[in-house]
């Protein structure tokens, strides 16, 4: 499933940043999860400890924050809040909205030593 391979990707990025920014251990990590990203926060929590085992983030505290889904309606050009990828425009009901936010996962910041 995606959550495990995403976490492995996170671990690699932490290692890169540790070298560039000169830190040895990660104590806390904040991940921002887009509402439309199809990433399941529970699965992420479940996999986090296992994937970080033996790495510089072993035992780190995981903070998850949610990013709302947003888009621009293709018909009326208004900015909409989107709960799903297939949500119609909340103003004019047009079925196609271009997603502008909330379909990604981002490593926000770290507390490191």
């Amino acid at each position: 499933m995606h959550e495990i391979s995403l976490l492995e990707n996170v671990r690699e990025i932490l290692q890169e940043h540790a070298q560039k920014q000169n830190f040895k251990r990660v104590k806390k990590i904040t991940l921002a999860i887009g509402k439309l990203s199809c990433i399941e926060p529970d699965a992420l929590r479940f996999g986090f400890d296992a994937v970080m085992q033996g790495s510089l983030a072993e035992g780190a505290e995981l903070i998850l924050s949610e990013v709302a889904g947003k888009g621009i309606c293709k018909a009326c050009s208004k900015e909409c809040i989107m709960e799903t990828l297939y949500a119609p425009c909340q103003y004019c009901e047009h079925p196609f909205v271009d997603v502008t936010a909330g379909n990604d996962m981002q490593i926000k910041d770290l507390i490191v030593i």
Partner: peptide, 25 residues
């Protein structure tokens, strides 16, 4: 980047905040 050597002294006891802002998808 390839591996860089950073010769700045580091206080290993102090926690600090590092901004990453890196998107994955």
């Amino acid at each position: 980047d390839t591996h860089e050597h950073n010769h700045q002294p580091v206080d290993l006891g102090a926690e600090r905040l590092v901004q990453v802002e890196q998107a994955l998808l």
